[in-house]
């Protein structure tokens, strides 16, 4: 492994930039993501930073059942994220639609139909520790030796 690759691995393990996008949730999971920022859970001590700009992000947290308004927009948000990237579905809604998945609703779950999802965190809402451990579990799998794996 080249020195450059080793430096990249080290930097990427300590600086994971996260953007979150709410594609129509009840706001419960948004608040749990917000709780990750609080001193009690404190994601920044693990080197995870919240930047709500997809062009700076490595990981996209997708929250909410998929509403028609996001039909073309979620794809464009995903395309703006530079490689290497991963998307994590937070909560039941992006996985199954949860309570909104009933007849005569407009939602279109799962989100995995629209963008590739690397990990799912079930729960309505999930605990902040579960979100945190999902991000920390996905990051090494996706980012470690990215250039080597691509070749």
């Amino acid at each position: 492994m080249s020195l450059l690759q080793r430096v990249k691995n080290f930097v990427r393990s300590r600086s994971i930039h996260v953007a979150y996008v709410d594609v129509g949730s009840c706001n419960g999971c948004d608040i749990e993501v917000l709780a990750c920022l609080s001193p009690r859970y404190d994601i920044e001590q693990y080197g995870i930073y919240v930047h709500n700009n997809p062009r700076e992000a490595d990981i996209l947290l997708v929250i909410g059942a998929f509403t028609p308004g996001w039909e073309d927009k979620l794809r464009s948000v995903w395309d703006k994220i530079p490689e290497p990237k991963a998307a994590i579905a937070i909560g039941n809604c992006p996985i199954s639609g949860c309570l909104y998945n009933r007849p005569h609703t407009l939602i279109d779950p799962p989100v995995a139909k629209h963008i590739p999802i690397a990990a799912q965190v079930p729960g309505c809402p999930p605990r902040p520790t579960e979100i945190l451990s999902a991000v920390l579990a996905v990051a090494p799998v996706v980012f470690k030796d990215f250039e080597v794996k691509k070749r």
């Binding site: 039941n92 996985i95 199954s96 949860c98 309570l99 998945n101 009933r102 799912q120 079930p122 729960g123 309505c124």
Partner: peptide, 25 residues
């Protein structure tokens, strides 16, 4: 929650099964 719990017949008898991803705890 729709589709969160089912009671399924297994060789040991009836058994409730929770579907994670649907269950809201």
């Amino acid at each position: 929650a729709p589709g969160a719990i089912e009671v399924i017949k297994t060789p040991e008898g009836w058994q409730p099964r929770i579907h994670i991803g649907h269950c809201i705890r």
